[in-house]
Structures are given as C-alpha cells and as structure tokens.
C-alpha cells in the first residue's frame, strides 16, 4: 500500500493561471488569496459575503482560497468550469446563479440582522445558515436557499478537501494515477 501513497501526482486541477505581460503566473487558490490577487468577476462585497458563508460551512475553506477558486471558474469558458454546479442543470453563465444567490443572501441577512453576512458574528452567521438549510427565508428572491447551501458547501469541500493536501489533512492517501508512459 505504501507504494500507492507515493504515486506521482498530476494535480493540475487546482492551479489558477493569471496572465502576465510575459507568460502566466501559476498559483494555487490559497496562494492567490494570500497575494490578494484581484478577482475577475465577483465584487468586493460579494467576495466577502461568500467567503464568510463558505468558511462557516467548511472551516479552512477561506484560507484554502475558495473565493479565488470560484471566481476563477466563473470567469472562464463554461465548458472549462470545474465547479460542481455544472452537474446540476443550472443554465450558464453560472455567474448569474452565484450573483443572484449572493444578492438574496445579503438581503436576507440585512433584513434579519441589519448587517451583511460578512459583518455577522459567528452565532448570527450560524443562524443565517440554519435559515438557508430550512429555506426559512421570507421574501427570498434568488435561487432556492437550501440549494445555495448545498452548492456553496460543496465548493468549500472541493477546495479544502479535494486536493492532495486536503486529503492528507484527513489522513487518507490521495493516490493519483501514474502518468502513462505512452499514449493509448
């Protein structure tokens, strides 16, 4: 089994490519966040709310760069997206889904607590999440709240645990395939 654990990794999936004057800067989502690279499509308010909620759902996902990952996927051609949402029958462009969801979330948070999600203390953020799970969101005008919970939680899991480091943090081997030595 030990040999399986040492297999060569081919984890291109979580590398974000940022264009430079010459070439491209290849970073993990965590590195992109750490360097505070500008987001492509989400504005600052949307990004702050999204990061607050995803971090509450999946602790560690903020540092892992969940928002940079999501923003990057939303900005690229639909067929290249790595977001789980593409499995779920939501019409492209998926930016519309995230943006409408974040707007509905912010409105609900302000109605409920007088603050946006990014400004909520932990206890109120937890109540907000409970509202999402139960679709207890009077006046909600975006994608279904419980569906947003599922999608955002899954995004957080992707970035936090869907990587070699993430699986190592669970003490389980990643076991990427060996790179084929010849074309089929």
């Amino acid at each position: 089994m030990e040999s399986l654990h040492k297999r060569r990794s081919l984890l291109k999936a979580l590398v974000l490519s940022y264009p430079l004057v010459s070439g491209a800067l290849l970073l993990s989502p965590a590195q992109a966040r750490q360097r505070k690279l500008p987001l492509a499509v989400l504005d600052d308010g949307e990004a702050a709310d999204l990061e607050s909620v995803i971090e509450a759902l999946v602790p560690g996902s903020a540092e892992a760069g969940a928002v940079h990952f999501i923003d990057y996927q939303l900005a690229r051609p639909a067929a290249d997206s790595l977001l789980m949402l593409r499995y779920l029958g939501v019409e492209q462009p998926h930016l519309n889904f995230y943006r409408a969801g974040l707007e509905a979330l912010a409105q609900h948070s302000v109605r409920r607590f007088g603050k946006r999600p990014s400004a909520l203390p932990a206890a109120e953020l937890d109540t907000l999440i409970t509202d999402l799970i139960a679709d207890d969101t009077p006046g909600w005008s975006g994608p279904p709240a419980s569906f947003l919970y599922f999608v955002w939680r899954s995004d957080g899991v992707d970035v936090t645990y869907g990587t070699e480091d993430g699986m190592a943090s669970l003490n389980t081997p990643y076991m990427a395939h060996i790179k084929p030595e010849q074309v089929w």
Binding site: A56, L57, V58, P59, G60, M84, Y87, L88, D126, I129, I133, Y149, F150, R153, S154, V157, D158, Y161, G162, G166, M167, S169, L170, N171, T172
Partner: peptide, 30 residues
C-alpha cells in the same frame, strides 16, 4: 468514494457543516 464530489463523502451527509464536518470526514474516509 472520495471526500469531495457530487457523490463524494461530504455530500452524502449534506446536513453536516461547520466544526462537525472535519471529524465526520476523518472518520468516514476510513
């Protein structure tokens, strides 16, 4: 099954979030 993904371990218990998620995953992967 792997930890993430539509059919992954985390999504088969979508009710678990926050501080309870990591202990659940640590147990479930084994």
């Amino acid at each position: 099954v792997k930890p993430n993904g539509l059919l992954g371990i985390a999504n088969n218990r979508a009710d678990i979030y926050g501080a309870q998620l990591r202990p659940f995953l640590q147990r479930a992967v084994n």
